[in-house]
Simulated assay, not measured.
Amino acid sequence: MKGTLMRPAFRAPFVSALAAAAALSLAGCGAVVSAVPSSTSPAASATASASPSPSASASAPAPVELKTYTFPNGHVSFKYPAGWKVELFTGSGSPSESATATVIDAGGTEQATVYSGPVADGVSHPVTRTVFESAPVSGLAAQPAPAAHYAFYVDRMDTNATYRMHLAAGAPKPGQGSALDGIIRAGNGVILADVKFIEKPFANDAAAKSWLAGTEGQALKALLLSISYS
């Protein structure tokens, strides 16, 4: 999705390492380690307003060819559309303890980030949440509770709406609660994974649901559900 990356207030500085630039700052300086070539791939627009349509969820996008990316540590992996590419950024040190994989679509837009590294801290604030979807991530089922879930929802505070699609620690609960930090414990560190939305990516909740039913939404949902640790 195109635009300026939104940085929600509830993300701790370390949690915002999910962005590629923040990953570089974890240890002072980083470097691009690898990239997987890209080819043409369709992407759905998420900024347009949409009204609910009964056929939106019934007409699921056709499956796309997938590739598997595995972090240098050999533990964390995920699947992504073959027409997209992955760039890995690491902190300093040899071997580096932290790494962020940035997933980029065929048009050059950064779509998601997956971080693997040392334990992080998170902060939160009160919100009112509307949950669109959530599901447990089978590849992370053996990791410590709360269980990792794919989640797509919107948090509202006052008149501000923050849409998020990411890995959540436990199933997100609708209604009043606290913002989620998205920190998944795995092995001796953590995994964080976030879809990179622009500021105000959807005109309303109906537009968010319409995007989810399209090619781009389904591809990013599948990416989050495919994350595993071994």
Score class of each variant (00 low, 15 high):
7 R>P: 00
8 P>T: 11
9 A>F: 10
10 F>I: 02
13 P>M: 08
13 P>T: 11
14 F>S: 14
14 F>Y: 04
14 F>W: 10
15 V>E: 14
16 S>I: 07
18 L>I: 15
18 L>P: 01
18 L>R: 07
19 A>D: 11
20 A>D: 05
20 A>M: 09
22 A>T: 11
24 L>F: 11
26 L>M: 10
26 L>S: 06
27 A>R: 02
27 A>K: 01
29 C>K: 12
34 S>N: 10
34 S>V: 13
38 S>V: 15
40 T>N: 04
42 P>W: 09
42 P>Y: 10
43 A>C: 12
44 A>D: 13
46 A>W: 02
47 T>A: 12
48 A>N: 10
48 A>V: 11
49 S>P: 02
49 S>G: 07
49 S>Q: 09
50 A>T: 04
51 S>Q: 05
56 A>W: 03
56 A>K: 02
57 S>D: 13
57 S>R: 12
61 P>Y: 09
62 A>E: 14
66 L>S: 07
69 Y>H: 04
70 T>G: 03
73 N>W: 04
76 V>A: 08
78 F>E: 01
82 A>K: 13
83 G>W: 03
84 W>A: 04
86 V>T: 09
88 L>K: 04
89 F>Y: 06
92 S>W: 00
94 S>P: 00
94 S>T: 02
101 A>S: 08
102 T>D: 08
104 I>N: 06
105 D>K: 13
107 G>C: 02
108 G>S: 11
111 Q>G: 04
112 A>M: 14
113 T>P: 00
114 V>H: 02
115 Y>F: 15
115 Y>E: 00
119 V>S: 13
121 D>K: 15
122 G>S: 14
123 V>N: 11
126 P>C: 04
126 P>E: 01
127 V>D: 02
128 T>W: 01
129 R>P: 07
130 T>M: 05
131 V>Y: 01
133 E>D: 14
133 E>C: 00
134 S>A: 14
136 P>S: 10
138 S>A: 15
138 S>P: 01
139 G>S: 08
141 A>Q: 13
143 Q>P: 00
144 P>S: 06
145 A>I: 10
147 A>P: 00
152 F>K: 12
154 V>Y: 02
154 V>G: 00
156 R>T: 15
157 M>N: 13
158 D>E: 12
163 Y>H: 05
164 R>W: 03
164 R>S: 13
164 R>T: 15
165 M>Q: 12
167 L>W: 03
167 L>R: 03
168 A>G: 03
168 A>M: 07
169 A>R: 00
173 K>W: 06
174 P>G: 11
175 G>C: 05
175 G>D: 04
176 Q>C: 04
177 G>T: 03
182 G>D: 06
187 G>V: 05
188 N>V: 05
192 L>T: 08
192 L>V: 12
194 D>K: 05
197 F>M: 13
200 K>C: 02
201 P>I: 13
203 A>Y: 01
204 N>A: 08
204 N>D: 09
209 K>F: 07
210 S>Q: 09
210 S>Y: 08
211 W>K: 14
214 G>M: 14
214 G>K: 15
214 G>W: 08
217 G>C: 14
220 L>P: 09
221 K>F: 10
221 K>R: 15
221 K>L: 10
222 A>H: 11
223 L>P: 03
224 L>H: 07
227 I>M: 08
227 I>N: 08
230 S>G: 13
230 S>V: 12
